[in-house]
Design a protein around this nucleic acid. Sequence first.
DNA 1: GGTAGACCTGGACGC
DNA 2: GCGTCCAGGTCTACC
Length: 318
Amino acid sequence: MGTSITIRPPEDYLLPRDTCSYGYFVLWPNRWLVPEQALLRALSLAEGAATARISQPGASPGSPLRVRFDRSLSRIEQGEARALIARMLRLDEDAMHIKGFHWVDRRWRKSGRGRLFRSPTLFEDVIKTVTSCNVAWPSTVKMNERLCAVCGRRAPSGMHTFPTPERLARTRAGTLRGRCRVGYRDQRIIDLARMFTRGEIDEAWLTDPATSDDDAFAFLKTLPGIGPYAAGNIMQLLGRYSYLALDTESLRHGRTVLGYEGTDAHVLKKLREHYEPFGAHKFRSYWFELWAWYETKAGASPEWDRDKVAASFTASKF
DNA sequence: GGTAGACCTGGACGC
DNA sequence: GCGTCCAGGTCTACC
């Protein structure tokens, strides 16, 4: 019999809306269960791997989250799991925080959108970002699946966790390239893992309000495999929304949705001007514009069929 | 500071 | 079934 715990989320929290809000919710080891409107997720805990099944039985904003695990958890592990789930679901962003965003960009007040799903750890967020660079989305899906299957820990449910920094730090480049299909990203992933294990990437400093956005962004750009796009994306994953992460998908959005014409450089300039009024929240304004457009094409994201829609969505497909 | 070319994979396409 | 081309962001060398 596994452990069950209850988590009280912010008063406006809605699990389907706030989980199915960023592409990482379809990447391994996350699995959104459409019929149950619940998230299945394997976690690395002190005494081994465990799979959490997270649901919101009340199905109303702010109603308690129920988390069931596939094995018994010690008190220490329960505390660990609560912290990991809180980070993943952005439970630190309370209702007032989201209202602050809606005050700047009123378009999302009715739907209540504001939180972007992320990973239980910064390490996983950084590696997922690296696997999303210079590649079509289906390959990102494949890389994360293989990383978990080859280097993750197996939970009683059979699901595999995302690899820990310690594990990837001692994995051979040939394994990552040959079995996980990460290509030239192999050594960069190992170097990043080693930096995490050595404490050279300090999440406390990166999230400290005393650290400026410019300083955090400049540091991220020094990391292997992290350029302007990846750094901008990691900024939002850290809860810093004042930077954009512009890529070819942004260009498509600028041209097909916002109607901009001309060279790439001109469209990028227009995009920056378009989002500038949203200031400290500009990434969210950008992202929810994109997400709303995806939903006009594929339906509401909590209903997406992972294999048919999520695994194939990419700029050129929609 | 700006830019060309390499990096690697998987999908599309033509034969 | 095979070969070729292309998309995707970062890095390095070069001007």
